[in-house]
């Protein structure tokens, strides 16, 4: 009697994270998720900064300084948020770079003539508006978080003083205008494209997202820009 033998090999292991990261679709989904986190931070940052306009409380302390102290006082919240944001930025940026390199490899010979039939500037220049935002954030951290540049007499914790002093001189307001144009264009397409990247393709939803992404992006960019412009115009002064 012969015995049939069958070699049983282990099925190839399936790494979910590996498959996600290896595919352009998975990477775009990760960029969408990290983009949502970063957008929420942008919104929170903007709402907090609005206190610049609320002046002092009854004790004579600036509201925005009290808010800054509250954020810095709570160390787990501060460092937890910073860690999450740093990881999100890292994933977003590394994925963007790899996809951008892949894009170059996917069309090694450019067209001699190519027309855009139906697309927005913000959608075609996502990578480059992202680069603008990246360098703007580095400058913004050096400007107001670390006080390395552009703020005469920088005082850690005295946000009201730093902001009013930091926007009155030099090229700071101009750099903020460039940064906010980059942010506005990036959000205008990113907030819409996020739905698509995560699989929500119902045209009713996409059309809604396309419309509101433009509104939200414009409002965020303009409100953020109002801070340096208000200081420049002398509406907010120490």
């Amino acid at each position: 009697m012969s015995v049939a033998t069958k070699t049983v090999t282990a099925p190839p292991s399936f790494s979910r994270a590996g498959v996600l990261w290896a595919s352009t679709v998975g990477k775009k989904a990760l960029m969408a998720l990290t983009g949502i986190l970063l957008s929420l931070f942008v919104l929170g940052h903007l709402l907090g900064n609005l206190q610049l306009y609320f002046g002092r409380d009854s004790t004579g302390a600036y509201l925005i300084n009290k808010y800054a102290e509250f954020l810095h006082h709570n160390k787990p919240l501060l460092y937890g948020t910073r860690t999450v944001l740093l990881v999100a930025v890292l994933i977003h940026v590394v994925a963007a770079f790899q996809l951008q390199l892949g894009k170059g490899a996917a069309r090694p010979i450019e067209y001699h003539q190519k027309e855009s039939v139906n697309s927005t500037v913000s959608s075609r220049y996502m990578f480059w508006t992202g680069v603008i935002i990246f360098f703007f954030v580095l400058y913004h951290l050096a400007h107001f978080t670390l006080g390395w540049t552009g703020v005469p007499d920088f005082k850690e914790g005295d946000v009201f003083h730093n902001v009013t002093a930091g926007f009155r001189s030099g090229i700071a307001p101009l750099l903020y205008v460039i940064g906010m144009i980059g942010l506005g264009l990036h959000l205008r397409h990113g907030l819409y494209s996020t739905f698509q990247s995560l699989g929500a393709g119902n045209p009713a939803v996409s059309q809604w997202a396309l419309k509101w992404a433009a509104v939200v992006a414009t409002v965020i960019a303009l409100v953020n820009l109002s801070f340096p412009l208000a200081v420049l115009a002398g509406l907010v002064k120490g």
Binding site: V19, A22, S23, T24, V25, K27, K28, L99, G102, K103, A105, A106, R107, S116, V117, N118, S119, T120, S123, R124, M126, H189, Y192, S193, Q196, S197
Partner: peptide
Amino acid sequence: MVAQMGKEGFGHCTTIGE
């Protein structure tokens, strides 16, 4: 199909709409 699309060297979708 998505894995093969990557292997063939196509780029990524950024919802441009062209």
